[in-house]
Design a binder for these strands. Structure first.
Lengths: 168, 168
DNA sequence: TGCAGTTACCTGGCCGAACAAGTAACTTGC
DNA sequence: GCAAGTTACTTGTTCGGCCAGGTAACTGCA
């Protein structure tokens, strides 16, 4: 190996382009958010795969478990996802046996998605992921740090939401 | 429309399953992180597409601009990405004319990726995205809030990094 | 020298996400 | 009652991300 001190690698860091070295602190909130979220995403993925779902499907299943059978349109509004993605995710969930699709009795365009009995076996496992993840996120946090983190992240979200509305 | 107050929809919220209603504050740090990161991701995507790159490609280009021609292997280590993803992203960047691939003179397995002259036209536009994003993330923040947010996110990242190493 | 083990890259497959476009069914206004 | 507009869902395509597998080239060690 002879590429550790070659051209200009392993250097300070550009503003974003992603040095993922945990010993280098991010210089902006945006970068810090990106890096934390990246790991968060990876961990969610691992935990979900272990439970038997692909990341993204859990949100659909959780709404179905919580609110009962629903139309794709309702899930799309609730989860903010794309219609095309929803169609195909539901198709895959159906193939996997976690969901059934039946026509809506009142609207011949619509379908109703309902969770199967088999999906109930997943439920506890999937729902156990969130407290576990919260624990991993905030290990070593004091209570007021947790509160601050929640509040600051909510404030960031609001700023970004405003920006997303006004078009970027 | 008659599905606003049907079964149990529009209710408080499960622990995660993603109510994206910005008026409902997230109940955990994990959920708050997820929601903020989701918007962050969407905004990055819009800004990058406007600049002419697909999200994910910017990290490759920025390392090439900053550090000069490199092997895929170096980028993979630096960005923490998958080898298969890197291969195909570089192929697409090559097709788009932003990158050239040439054989390594010292290792016949390896290739060297270098940014093209044409890619330089993107550089300023892409690099302008990060301060813009930081502004959107922290609009209305006091200086100490920015500092706190960075520190808390770094702490979250560290906790998650430890978890990711120890295997989830 | 020669073989095991590693490294560098590529392919194929599957997934979610986004954009575009299309079809069928419902709703509104005239 | 009918055309125009909207809504619900589907399909095609392209992308990043991940996993599994495959090939060629390098490295180390006996």
């Amino acid at each position: 190996m002879h590429d550790d001190h070659q051209s200009g690698s392993e250097y300070p860091v550009p503003d974003y382009g992603c040095r993922l070295d945990p010993t280098v602190e991010p210089s902006t909130v945006s970068e810090a958010l990106f890096r934390a979220a990246r790991l968060h995403h990876v961990l969610i993925g691992k935990l979900l795969r272990a439970a038997g779902l692909h990341p993204g499907q859990e949100a659909i299943m959780m709404r179905l478990w919580a609110d009962g059978p629903q139309q794709p349109a309702a899930l799309i509004r609730l989860l903010g996802s794309d219609a095309a993605t929803m169609t195909r995710s539901v198709q895959r969930l159906e193939r996997a046996g976690f969901v059934r699709r039946k026509p809506s009795p009142t609207d011949r365009r619509a379908i109703i998605i309902e969770p199967t009995q088999a999906s109930q076996a997943l439920r506890a496992q999937v729902e156990a992921i969130w407290p576990r993840l919260e624990e991993l996120c905030t290990s070593g946090f004091a209570d007021d740090e947790r509160t601050q983190a929640r509040a600051l992240l909510a404030k960031i979200e609001q700023g970004l939401a405003r920006a997303a509305e006004e078009e970027a």
